[in-house]
Design a binder for these strands. Structure first.
Lengths: 248, 248
DNA sequence: CAGAATTGTTGATCTGCGTCAAGGACAGCA
DNA sequence: TGCTGTCCTTGACGCAGATCAACAATTCTG
């Protein structure tokens, strides 16, 4: 890629509501783990010992579909795209991972999708076996993991509705609203500017559209003063309008 | 519905690989539970005591989206459709439930979709709280549940690929192959006839197509001698052809 | 059994989005 | 600075599938 976008990294500390205490990031790699709300003291450091840091450049791959799943990941900064490929090259992006997101919570034998970095990315990497063993000793954690997976499932069903029953304009609006909500959880400022670390092509492959259609819909929304297109992002001007399209 | 289709019920016993012993169905309502492979002796009857039988006619509703989820279900005969509605009435079917399938494994506070019976249907119904409490005492069961949910997630992602990146003909072919695999697991005979308890409209709402397009694609496949349309089902004549379309 | 309601099929026509093509903007690099 | 490779945008055109319409088949209802 000619223009790697900014990482939009988020300080790990801000991700975990119950660990606001000032600690060094070196010592708390896993603090940003989305399951940390379910962690008891001591378990955190135990988990920390299982993890090793991972650092990737834009476009580098984290893991590939159908490979044996040897690791689980927790993203600490940057973002990734998760996708499946059809034999003839058609691609469906099944999701985007942002800081704080957990990859591999399904704990399946093999990866059900590929993942690569959209931006320079850092993550905590755990051996899947070690993580799984750790879980066996912590039922409440498994519970949390299951509830995360359930939430994923719900999002996947929501995406089915978007893919199957919405127009191009509604798809793009729903995408923006969904992403806005996720970014909002990561930052204190409720900015109306939505970072878009992915390309138009990626958005298209997520929404079941072509690059051109994504571009046209964004342009149309911008022409109607509903959004403003900024470098590597979009600023919402008429939130109600976009939300209306998204939930219609 | 004017014409409730046959229930295509499957004897509960056949659903659980490790409970082939001859027992009365009265005594083993939960034997068909898809998690029973993870059950130890004694737990089964314990679980059985938590369940109560449910019997519904075609088109009767099991539960509705956004309602508080008070029960989890295990279908013993008949089939159901699971769907989400958009405010304007557009509908996306997120899945079909067959005998042996478990509904509510996400254990979420509220239902993320509605479910109603396609045919006369029987199920074991559990109080969600009781079931959840039971799980707390059986970590290995939770593990199994999580792996089922993970499989669901993988299927949902597969459906995303189908919805986002496949042509109408490929969608219909993939639907037939997917359903065939699921029916096959439920019956000893590897019949090439696939029961279709759902209407063309339902298939369309599952695949992101209109009734007419579903009908046309089925007719086209039949004209090309790839399938034979029979009452309430389809018989595969050229399996390779359909499989080719499905995975292309 | 007639009549109504629902489902399924088929044809004619329309249209949203894909396809194809061209050019602009911008970063990386020599 | 110009060259090159992405990415993004915009326009012209075509087509897969939606829409509209008519009708057949089937089942339900009284």
């Amino acid at each position: 890629m000619a223009s790697p976008r900014e990482a939009f990294s988020v300080p790990a500390l801000s991700l975990c509501p119950n660990s606001k205490a000032a600690v060094h990031c070196d010592q708390c790699r896993v603090r940003s783990l989305s399951i940390c709300g379910a962690l008891e003291s001591g378990e955190l450091s135990e988990l920390d010992r299982l993890s090793r840091p991972l650092s990737l450049g834009a476009r580098e791959t984290m893991f590939e579909q159908d490979e044996l799943a040897e690791s689980v990941f927790n993203i600490t900064s940057g973002s990734a795209r998760l996708y499946r490929l059809l034999p003839d090259g058609r691609r469906q992006i099944v999701g985007f991972a942002l800081p704080g997101d957990f990859l591999g919570l399904a704990l399946t034998e093999r990866n059900t999708f590929s993942a690569d970095a959209l931006t320079p990315l850092t993550a905590c990497q755990f051996s899947r076996n070690a993580f799984s063993d750790f879980l066996d000793t912590k039922p409440h954690l498994l519970r949390k993991l299951h509830s995360l997976a359930s939430h994923e499932l719900s999002l996947a069903q929501e995406q089915m509705v978007i893919l199957g029953r919405r127009t191009a304009e509604e798809k793009v609006a729903a995408f923006l609203i969904g992403l806005r909500k996720r970014w909002a959880r990561l930052s204190t400022s409720s900015s109306v500017t939505i970072p878009l670390p992915m390309t138009r092509q990626d958005i298209g492959d997520f929404l079941g559209l072509t690059v051109e259609t994504v571009s046209r819909m964004l342009t149309r929304l911008a022409r109607e003063k509903a959004i403003l297109i900024v470098p590597d992002g979009v600023r919402l001007l008429d939130v109600a309008r976009i939300e209306g399209l998204a939930e219609m």
